[in-house]
Nucleic acid binder design. Structure first.
Length: 956
RNA sequence: GCUCGAGUGGCGGAACUGGUAGACGCGCUGGAUUCAAAAUCCAGUUCCUUUGGAGUGUGGGUUCGAUUCCCACCUCGAGUACCA
């Protein structure tokens, strides 16, 4: 019987589903192991071949761990809130829930087809109210918490209130808004209820604030910093501007240091840790207060080089800085206003694009040097960012290149405060060799000594202190979208109130339109039943709002990362309706042992999740400070795009690849004539435009299906082609697999033709998991014929004694595959299987004692065929729990070795010698050999290196 | 610019802590089988001036010996970007 993958794969997929083979139990005598994949957003396009790469790897690992006797948790779900479903809803009016449901169904079919060993009973969907109930619940817990620097953790807000009642806030060391006023217990008691709530908002871990946000007019929503790439939205590439809006914020900055420290405790890829480190952006320095002359105002500044304070010759404020208007003198008002206005108009993108242009204006105002009391001119300049530090810098042109350039440009003096350094050409910024001079009490000190000294002095005069600054900003948590988690929040007198836990979830209301309202409110503003009745604790019609018992609900929804920030814990007990998860469940599963996913989530999902995990840890409901011990980034599978070349200016004229050339003047006259003839253009410039066409229109020899193209899109209906050898040859380009490049390949066709086991093996065989690699199906026949050979090997099975060679082939394989899986080197395992099957076939092995363990070793990679072979071997239980064969060294012991004989490090011939031969005998045997003498040509070797069991090297 | 990766045949890639460079697969070439094709099997396949040489992006270095370690540079990719 031939290898019939269709029948086999369908049979075992059904068996696994019927028998719930991969259901994980929350208690077991076995050790636990938790293997997690990043759950997908179910888009309309379905899975492409890039998705399963990580899923296959994690599935191999999960299946392997089961063979190794672990109780494995391997769940899957859907990150099902998101923009595409909403955009589709806006266009068609179809509810996003329906689109999402359809897409999920397709994803599920595709995943089932690949034979993944997921425990589907634990599936979660972020858009399911039963799930987002707990997202809302975490939000409420954050709202009810503040961050105490003394205990260095989140604490209950009620504790803070009792401190305020007892002693005010003067002794409280909290991470709170910078503008929090100081007050005594008496003062607190005198505050109105509303004021109290306002003050508390400055402490809560999630809070409302008027924030400068990234507003994307095209999407009608704000975006988080990590959702803005090069000044445009990550999704869709729309322009983004800065705008002030009242938004929910997450006080992630409270955890900046712990997020940084935690990185040392987890086994994550270094590049990923680096990008989180950079994103958090810790810098040590000092906070310095500069007094404004003839005023009570001070300008706070953060600097990493307080040691250079005697080199300050001007200050620069961000144009948006709140003191600008106050400081500016009447004489300078006009130019300053013009500059401020011009800056506000420039998009972030513009400002970023030209880093080279130096601009700024003098305000006319002066600050006072804290030590010399000299006046320091105050400038504004757009190179100072309002969002970083204090939005103001003390400029030390001799020590900072940017300040140096600014000073040169505006003819500001550049005092030199370094000993023995020439600053006539550029600034000197090398901390290691710094010796301070010309700086009063700092003279002669190194960077380190001077920094310590100056901070002491600043503290003495009360104008500064040592400070650590972070680049990380608090995260905006509001989105002006429909298809996201509603906030469990209603407003009384403009102040946010939480809906009590027991009334969650607060479900999304129905709306007629998914667009913002005419008054510019978010889509939830269209809902007519969206008010909270505090007496019945239910959502009621808006018209019942009376501001006494019925109040308006929040109109924003949560961002995409809300639902993914705690899903890994929820899987541990996903059907629990009483709690986010039971304490028993999390005590058993603890954390994720292996997390596989893309590196694009480095500063988004993976940072936010770590933040939430630390918060849950502080609350005492998560036992681990980090949610995932080990993380692996699978590489991207790139697509091979197909390009056709349009003659510029001729809509329907396309030339085959060889005819186009980027530099027309380099083209052959003959070719130019042909093209001119083709487009009937005697004179004028020839140029070409590259256009992507669907890769399915191109065959493996890069020939275009011309008729197919004409039918593909109306634009090409009348296309006319200049052919070479009667064919149109397309250009090829390796690019990210993306719908817009028409280079997406989905796994369905491959599954259909070769089966899931082939696809699984092939995706692993492509190369190292973590590297990105181009998708090319050309090689898939290799793994397919391997499976056929494997199948054939099991056609006759008997109880014969295995030969020494049989055992050697098997145990070599066990050893290598075990090492490979532990090292996530899945590509080399596939080669190992091929070698093993080739050897056993050559040896005509039919021994049960070999074929049985071999089936288990292969089973994590190609589970369907392994189950079928296992059944053929006479088993009635699934192979999935069979224990992994034990490697035995004794079968690999050799008695002789084929020594490579090298001359000056180059291998010239090989010589078989017994392994127990000692150094001297080996040397004698090699020197006596005729080929040695031929190589030496009469010379006497200077030295002979013999490494027994490895190599012989003759020098001379 | 800065940070982090990566450069090995026609292609994907292999080579454990420095010890036979190119495993395994694709492709290609030749052969067997076949009326023929598919499938299958066998042999070959880094390059060159082939009784021998050279060779892992380039140039140096350490070593008996370097794809592997060190230094400098080049190219490509990813992240980040006026961060005070």
């Amino acid at each position: 019987m031939n290898y019939n993958f269709r029948e086999i794969e369908a049979k075992w997929q059904k068996y696994w589903a019927d028998n719930q083979t991969f259901k994980a139990h929350n208690e077991s005598d076995k050790p636990k192991y938790y293997v997690l994949d990043m759950f997908p957003y179910p888009s309309g396009a379905g899975l492409h071949v890039g998705h399963p790469l990580g899923y296959i790897a994690s599935d191999i690992y999960a299946r392997y761990k089961r063979h190794k006797g672990f109780n494995v948790l391997h769940p899957m779900g859907y990150d099902s809130f998101g923009l595409p479903a909403e955009q589709y809803a806006i266009q068609t009016g179809q509810h996003p829930a329906i689109t999402t449901e359809v897409n999920i169904k397709r994803y599920r079919e595709q995943m089932d087809q690949l034979g993944f060993s997921f425990d589907w009973s634990r599936e979660v969907r972020t858009s399911d109210p039963k799930y987002y109930k707990w997202t809302q619940w975490v939000f409420i817990q954050l709202f009810n918490s503040w961050y105490d620097k003394k205990t260095d953790k989140a604490e209950d807000i009620t504790d803070l209130i009792s401190i305020f009642e007892k002693e005010g806030n003067t002794n409280v060391e909290a991470l709170c808004d910078d503008d929090t006023p100081a007050f005594t217990a008496e003062k607190w008691a005198s505050f109105s209820d509303k004021t109290k709530q306002e003050v508390l908002l400055k402490y809560r871990l999630t809070y409302l604030a008027d924030a400068e946000v990234n507003w994307c007019p095209a999407l009608g929503t704000v975006l988080a910093n990590d959702e803005v790439v090069n000044g445009v939205s990550e999704r869709g590439g729309h322009p983004v501007i800065r705008k002030k809006m009242t938004q929910w914020m997450m006080r992630i900055t409270a955890y900046a240091q712990r997020l940084l420290d935690g990185l040392d405790t987890i086994d994550w890829p270094q590049p990923l840790k680096d990008s989180q480190t950079n994103w958090i952006g810790r810098s040590e320095g000092a906070h310095v207060e500069f007094k404004v002359q003839n005023s009570n105002d001070t300008i706070p500044v953060f600097t990493t080089r307080p040691d250079t304070i005697f080199g300050v010759s001007f200050m620069t404020l961000a144009p948006e800085h709140e003191l600008v208007a106050k400081i500016t003198t009447p004489g300078q008002k006009e130019v300053v206003d013009a500059y401020v206005e011009a800056t506000a108009k420039r998009s972030e993108r513009d400002r970023m694009a030209d880093v080279k242009t130096i601009s700024g204006v003098f305000t006319g105002g002066f600050a006072e040097h804290p030590f010399t009391k000299e006046p320091i001119p105050i400038w504004i300049g757009d190179y100072v960012l309002a969002s970083y530090g204090t939005g103001a810098v003390m400029a030390v042109p001799c020590g900072d290149q940017r300040d140096y350039d600014f000073a040169k440009h505006f003819n500001i003096p550049i005092p030199n405060i370094f000993d023995g350094v020439d600053i006539s050409e550029e600034a000197f910024a090398d901390k290691a060799t710094t010796i301070i001079g010309n700086s009063d009490f700092l003279n002669g000190l190194s960077y380190k000594e001077a920094t310590k000294k100056i901070i002491e002095e600043l503290e003495k005069i009360g104008q500064g202190e040592g400070k650590i600054n972070y680049r990380l900003r608090d995260a905006v948590f509001s989105r002006q979208r429909y298809w996201g988690e509603p906030f469990p929040v209603y407003y009384v007198d403009g102040m946010p109130q939480m809906i009590a836990d027991e009334h969650l979830p607060l479900e999304l209301p129905e709306v007629e339109k998914y667009l913002p309202t005419e008054t510019g409110e978010p889509p939830l503003g269209n809902a007519t039943v969206w008010a909270w009745n505090t007496e019945t604790n239910a959502v009621v019609e808006n018209e019942k709002i009376d501001h006494t018992s019925v109040f308006p609900l929040e109109l924003n929804t949560m961002p995409g990362w809300a639902g993914s920030s705690q899903y890994f814990n929820r899987y541990m007990d996903s059907q629990n309706s009483e709690a986010i998860y039971s304490q028993e469940a999390i005590d058993y599963w603890q954390d994720v042992d292996l997390y596989i996913g893309g590196s694009e989530h480095a500063t988004g999902h993976l940072l936010y999740s770590r933040f939430w995990q630390k918060f849950l840890f502080d609350m005492g409901i998560a036992p681990k400070k980090e949610f995932a011990k080990k993380l692996i980034n699978q590489g991207m599978i790139t697509g091979t795009s197909a390009l056709i070349y349009r003659v510029l200016g001729f809509k329907d004229k396309f030339v085959s690849k060889t005819f186009r050339n980027k530099f027309v003047h380099e083209m052959d006259e003959e070719v130019v004539r042909k093209i001119r003839n083709f487009v009937q253009l005697e004179q004028g410039t020839l140029a070409f435009q590259e256009l992507h066409v669907d890769v399915s229109l191109v065959n493996p020899s890069n020939e275009l299906d011309i008729e197919g193209l004409r039918k593909w899109q109306p634009e090409y209906e009348k296309a006319d082609f200049l052919l070479e050898d009667g064919k149109y040859i397309v250009g090829r380009e390796i690019e990210k697999m993306s719908k817009r490049w028409f280079n997406v390949v989905n796994p369905d066709a491959i599954c259909e033709e070769y089966g899931a086991d082939s696809l699984r093996l092939y995706e692993m065989f492509l190369g190292p998991l973590e590297q990105s690699k181009p998708w090319n199906t050309a090689g898939i026949s290799g793994v397919y014929s391997f499976l056929k050979k494997l199948w054939k090997l099991y056609t006759s099975i008997d109880d014969s004694e295995p030969t020494a060679d049989n055992l050697k082939a098997l145990h070599k394989t066990i050893k290598k595959v075990e090492e490979d899986i532990e090292n996530f080197s899945f590509n080399t395992s596939v080669s190992t299987f091929m070698i093993c099957v080739n050897e056993l076939t050559a040896q005509k092995c039919s021994s049960n004692a070999i074929l049985e363990p071999l089936a288990i070793v292969i089973s994590p990679y190609a589970p369907h065929i392994a189950e079928e072979l296992w059944e053929k071997l006479g088993h009635s239980e699934s192979i999935s729990e069979a224990s992994f064969p034990k490697f035995e060294e004794k079968y690999l012991v050799e008695s002789s070795k084929e020594y490579p004989i090298s001359f000056n490090g180059k291998m010239r011939f090989k010589l078989e010698l017994p392994l127990d031969m000692d150094k001297n005998d080996i040397e004698a045997a090699v020197m006596a050999h005729e080929k040695t003498q031929a190589q030496l040509k009469g010379r006497t070797p200077k030295k002979v290196i013999v490494v027994p069991g490895k190599i012989v090297n003759i020098v001379g």
